[in-house]
């Protein structure tokens, strides 16, 4: 039992990062119904920028993080404006999908030109040590990551609930025609959504980099697919569902590492998520479809 709880705590720490990615990913999906397969590589490029700012320019990791968050927002908004906007409303689903993958590769190539193919050591944001709480050995860095991810999600929820722009995002995500009818600037909202998604995702990527002390050129795809799976299983139309999906993915991975093998953890986690999707095709918290009469 002690071991199980230890694994679950670690799973929740890991899952909070996935939850942040899934939330950022689901946000775009909710407003546009578009799978943003360039999501992770936009974050990778911005995270590499952060590494470069610290290692070559000597900037403090926290200042570099702030710049990287802004960079992730700008890169995401540029992708939306210059690429995805051309496919919206034109019924070119496959073309949009291919364009997203092409974007992902372009961003990854830029990142590798910047920093090379070798794994990159991530700047330390928190000095981590082991702490003992009620008999459990916990990493202080992991707890800080968990706290920051939760704080970011709570702040984001407040932004959506309490600000005019946040409410506009939620409403445009439900019905873009209705949003236009009441005067919500849908085009502007979509661009903002990409920017917010990039910024949220980058915070998750930085927490991930800090926890594992490094990133490599395939991390972008890894982020995209973790976010995609967590958001889909959580319920692609539900932001809360995306958070639940992320936590579930982290928990399953941690249990797989603890009870089976680290080598199979991701395969087992993705298989488990596929089974959940099979049992609940709309996701854990996906919207029901209700016929209006």
């Amino acid at each position: 039992m002690h071991y199980l709880i230890q694994l679950m705590i670690e799973g929740i720490e890991q899952g909070s990062i996935y939850a942040l990615w899934a939330l950022a990913y689901a946000l775009v999906y909710q407003v546009l119904g578009l799978m943003n397969f360039a999501f992770g590589d936009a974050l990778l490029l911005s995270a590499y920028l952060m590494i470069a700012l610290v290692t070559t320019s000597g900037l403090s990791p926290w200042l570099a993080l702030a710049i990287a968050i802004a960079a992730a927002a700008v890169v995401s908004m540029l992708i939306e404006r210059q690429v995805y906007a051309r496919f919206i409303g034109r019924g070119q689903g496959e073309a949009g999908f291919i364009a997203a993958l092409a974007c992902a590769y372009i961003l990854r190539n830029i990142a590798t030109v910047m920093r090379g193919n070798e794994p990159q050591t991530f700047p330390t944001l928190f000095n981590s040590s082991l702490v003992s709480v009620a008999g459990y050995q916990l990493s202080s860095g992991g707890l800080i990551v968990l706290g920051l991810c939760v704080a970011t999600m709570v702040a984001f929820a407040l932004f959506l609930r309490s600000t005019k722009v946040g409410r506009g995002i939620v409403l445009a995500g439900q019905d873009r025609v209705a949003a236009a009818i009441v005067g919500i600037p849908v085009r502007k909202v979509i661009t903002i959504v990409y920017g917010v998604s990039g910024a949220l995702g980058l915070i998750g990527a930085a927490m991930f980099g800090d926890l594992y002390h490094g990133l490599n050129s395939t991390t972008g795809f890894y982020i995209t697919f973790q976010a995609f799976i967590a958001a889909t299983v959580g319920g692609a139309g539900s932001l809360l569902g995306a958070v639940v999906g992320g936590l579930a993915l982290g928990l399953i991975e941690s249990l797989a590492v603890g009870y089976v093998s680290g080598n199979f953890a991701q395969a087992l986690a993705w298989t488990a998520m596929a089974m959940i999707a099979l049992i609940r095709p709309r996701g854990l918290l996906g919207h029901r479809v209700v016929e209006r009469v």
Partner: peptide, 11 residues
Amino acid sequence: VPQGRQLFPYA
């Protein structure tokens, strides 16, 4: 106010 109302369904 269009035909079918076009309300935000989950609001």
